[in-house]
Nucleic acid binder design. Structure first.
Lengths: 135, 135
DNA sequence: GTTTATTGTAATAAAACTTGTTACAATTAG
DNA sequence: CTAATTGTAACAAGTTTTATTACAATAAAC
């Protein structure tokens, strides 16, 4: 992961969890993170797909958390934004004529899946609630 | 990690470990991975800095492994190429006037370090020798 | 119902990162 | 001396990430 999506999304969710009874708008959230409100709205789109939030258009519109914060684990959040593996990409076209090249991707894949799973398992033990309670 | 450096470097090291008595040149290694030889030479530079290989210039030049493959753990390799954290980047300028923005990076950092450490610890239990023996 | 503020989304631009390529000086075996 | 190789710089191309502009659809509030 070489982007800020996990940081952005957990920031958004933390704010929503902190103010669970208010319709918070994307401008307000964006100011806390100090990023462009359009990016916030894009991430809110991803959170909607998970069913975690409800948004309302129009004047006095905004977003509210839809589920209890102990129902969302950090693994759920990570999976939502994850777009690369911990150990990075495999090589695209290793040479099948080379005994190493022939099998490397298969061996790498095993290691890669195992490493990613380790992270997921660890994050499954932590909820958004645990995280938010630190504030 | 959204690059192929781990895959490239472990591929290189696997080949070197497989043929420990030959001076393998960058063209030959590059053909197995199917990448540009200059990239191989760049990575070989990183491996030299770790003291893991010796290279020889000139005709019949090439590279040989300098240490036993059970002396290199996958954690050592990962650290050599790692250029991003498992959970990605923190947000650059969260708003210090917001109670969430004020502390988010500190809380995220704790989580991030813990997650990275988990991966390192797991990879420390695996050596290059273990990996190479699969071939 | 008109006004105003907001989401949702597309299109584009700018910035950062990754990979590939060309070129060549320094070096070393034969 | 010749041929082949490393080491490295410079640049080019491709991909990903982040920011920005624009605007239709919508809904509250008056």
């Amino acid at each position: 992961m070489n982007n800020t999506r996990f940081a952005t999304v957990i920031h958004i969710l933390t704010i929503l969890a902190k103010y669970p009874t208010e319709w918070l708008n994307s401008d307000w959230i964006a100011e806390s993170i100090n990023i462009n409100p359009v990016i916030v709205r894009k991430e809110l789109g991803a959170l909607q797909e998970q069913g975690w939030i409800t948004s309302r258009k129009g004047k006095d519109g905004g977003t509210m958390l839809n589920v209890k914060s102990d129902q969302i684990t950090l693994a759920d959040i990570y999976r939502t934004v994850k777009n690369s593996d911990v150990l990075g990409k495999k090589n695209l076209n290793p040479n099948p004529k080379c005994p190493v090249g022939k099998d490397i991707n298969e061996k790498l894949a095993t290691l890669s899946v195992e490493t990613d799973q380790l992270v997921i398992t660890s994050l499954q033990g932590k909820t958004l609630k645990d995280f938010v309670e630190q504030f």
